[in-house]
C-alpha cells in the first residue's frame, strides 16, 4: 500500500529531481557552494519527500507531517518543497527579503508545506510529541510524523523531555531524524542514539548521503515505539 502510494507520487511530482536541488538552492545563495548547514540535510530531506512521506500540496488532514526542527540553513528544505510542487521557484529570488515568505528560518504561516516555524533549537521534537498525541486522539491512524534535528541541537534539554516521554507513551507514528555532522560541542560519547535507545526508541545509524540506506531506515517497521534514524554526514572536515 505504502509502496504504491510512493510510486504514484514520483510519477505525478514536479519535473525536478535530486540533481536539480543544487541549482534551485543557488537561486537563494547566488553560487553553487553552500553552507554545511544547508547541504547536510539535503539527502535525507530528498529521500523523505521523494520516497517516504505521504504528503503533497493538498495538505490533506491524514497526510504525513514533516517538522524541520533544525531550522537553520533551510535552503535545502525550501529547494525540496519547491521541487515537490509546494511553491514556485520564483520565490527563491527574494530569499531573506522583507516581503519574502522565505527567510533564514522557516515560518509555517508564510511558506506552503512548512508544518512548523523553527529557528530556536529544541522545539520540533516536543511539538511533534503533541501532534502525535493529537493524531492518535483523533483516530488519524494513517498519519506519521518525521522530525529532523541536528546532533548539536540535541544539547537542548527540551529534547530530552520529549525523548523520554515519547517512548513511554508508545508513540510509534513518531520518527526522529538526526543529521549528525558531529558538531555538538561536548559530543555524545557512545553516539546520541544511545540516549534514545535507553528510553526505548528503535534506533538506526546510516550513511546520511546514501539514499537507499536512508529509505530502508526510514521505512523499517518499529511497532509500539518511536524510531530514530541518525543520518551520519561526517564532520565538516571529513568532506
Amino acid at each position: 500500500m505504502q509502496e504504491n502510494q510512493t510510486r504514484e507520487r514520483v510519477v505525478d511530482s514536479a519535473p525536478y529531481g535530486f540533481d536539480d536541488l543544487a541549482g534551485l538552492m543557488s537561486r537563494m545563495t547566488g553560487d553553487e557552494k553552500h553552507s554545511e548547514a544547508a547541504t547536510s540535510t539535503m539527502d535525507a530531506l530528498w529521500v523523505l519527500y521523494d520516497r517516504v512521506l505521504n504528503v503533497d500540496s493538498s495538505l490533506r488532514e491524514d497526510r504525513d507531517r514533516f517538522y524541520l526542527s533544525k531550522g537553520h540553513g533551510p535552503q535545502a528544505f525550501y529547494a525540496v518543497l519547491c521541487a515537490k510542487g509546494f511553491f514556485a521557484p520564483e520565490l527563491f529570488d527574494m530569499f531573506g527579503a522583507f516581503r519574502s515568505p522565505l527567510g533564514y528560518h522557516p515560518d509555517r504561516a508564510l511558506v506552503p508545506g512548512v508544518e512548523i516555524s523553527s529557528g530556536s533549537l529544541g522545539h520540533g521534537l516536543p511539538l511533534a510529541v503533541g501532534t502525535a498525541l493529537g493524531l492518535r486522539a483523533r483516530g488519524l491512524d494513517g498519519s506519521r510524523l518525521w522530525v529532523m534535528l541536528g546532533d548539536g541541537e540535541f544539547d537542548e534539554g527540551s529534547n530530552h523531555e520529549a525523548v523520554a516521554y515519547a517512548a513511554r507513551a508508545g508513540l510509534d507514528r513518531l520518527n526522529a531524524v538526526v543529521i549528525d555532522n558531529h558538531s555538538a560541542t561536548q559530543g555524545w560519547p557512545g553516539g546520541l542514539e544511545s540516549r534514545f535507545a535507553a528510553e526505548g526508541w528503535a534506533t538506526r545509524r546510516v550513511d546520511g548521503r546514501d539514499h537507499d540506506a536512508l529509505e530502508r531506515a526510514f521505512t523499517a517497521p518499529h511497532p509500539g515505539r518511536p524510531a530514530l534514524v541518525v543520518a551520519d554526514v561526517g564532520a565538516p572536515g571529513d568532506r
Binding site: 508544518e115 516536543p126 511539538l127 510529541v129 503533541g130 493529537g134 493524531l135 488519524l140 527540551s158 516521554y165
Partner: peptide, 14 residues
C-alpha cells in the same frame, strides 16, 4: 517545557 510544546503540537493536529 514539554507541557507547553505538547499543547502546541496538539493544536497543530486540530
Amino acid at each position: 517545557q514539554l507541557l507547553v510544546s505538547v499543547a502546541g503540537g496538539l493544536s497543530l493536529a486540530g
